[in-house]
């Protein structure tokens, strides 16, 4: 109950409106640019909305270099609300309960941000391309020509998209956990943002190089990211239990 109260307080008190507006504007603009990019490609083969959305969700430039910084920009101040704990910890009566509340705040922010990304991308895609529940041969041929294995498209578009989206969601949540850990350790928002962004870029590029985009690989990726996120949370608990909260470090 105290955890939920702390989470509710954190969510209601920490809605940086300006940051969210800037992030949503960046996501919308990036969606328009992505669709504009793929319109040129669609001259060679007719693509559907789900196929374009799949390309956006698996494009490292969008996911790692545009959406990830926007996401971290919206969440990087969560740990520093109300003077880094302070009265919130008193309300929750323990540091672990306070941190659990913060975990819920991070999770809620991640889900909202991700939902906004998918909604905006799908809206922009659907205005330009038609819907289809099967992969088109032109799209599969194009992806194979770009070096992706044909096994990526063994499942229909909707389940493949759901798995790809879940993998991206867990990737962002993991980066949020890294942000939480760095915030606790260093106590500075700029350090939290830059270190978690750097970690996210490394993991994102590794994902692209090592894993393919078929359903099974996406599920394995999700499982690994969930485990890694839990590990980050445990490290965060350990760091928080040792932290001197009376000393302010910038």
């Amino acid at each position: 109950m105290k955890i939920l109260r702390g989470a509710a307080f954190g969510i209601s008190e920490h809605i940086p409106a300006a940051r969210w507006c800037l992030a949503i504007a960046a996501v919308a603009f990036s969606a328009a640019v992505s669709v504009s990019r793929y319109i040129d490609l669609a001259d060679t083969a007719a693509f559907s909305s789900f196929e374009i959305l799949f390309m956006i969700m698996t494009d490292p430039i969008n996911i790692v270099f545009i959406y990830l910084p926007a996401y971290l920009f919206t969440v990087c101040g969560i740990m520093f609300g109300s003077g880094f704990g302070g009265i919130e910890i008193l309300r929750c009566h323990s540091r672990s309960d306070w941190l659990a509340g913060k975990l819920i705040v991070y999770a809620v922010n991640t889900v909202i941000f991700f939902a906004a990304v998918v909604a905006i991308d799908l809206t922009v895609c659907s205005r330009t391309f038609f819907f289809s529940d099967v992969w088109s041969s032109g799209f599969v041929g194009f992806r194979v020509m770009m070096g992706n294995p044909a096994s990526d498209f063994a499942s229909p578009p909707v389940p493949t998209l759901i798995c790809a989206s879940a993998a991206v969601l867990m990737f962002y949540f993991f980066c949020g956990m890294v942000n939480m850990l760095v915030s606790v350790v260093f106590g500075r928002e700029s350090a939290a943002l830059f270190i978690s962004l750097l970690a996210g870029i490394c993991i994102g590029m590794l994902n692209t190089m090592v894993y393919s985009n078929d359903t099974e690989s996406q599920l394995i990726r999700c499982a690994i990211l969930v485990a890694a996120s839990l590990l980050m949370y445990v490290f965060c608990l350990a760091a928080l239990s040792r932290k001197d909260l009376t000393r302010r470090s910038g």
Binding site: A32, R37, D40
Partner: peptide
Amino acid sequence: RQRYIPAVIPQVIYLFCTYAFPHL
């Protein structure tokens, strides 16, 4: 109110426009 934002935001906008303008 954050020290790093005025130094970083111009570069971010610049890189974003550098990526986006050729496609638009």
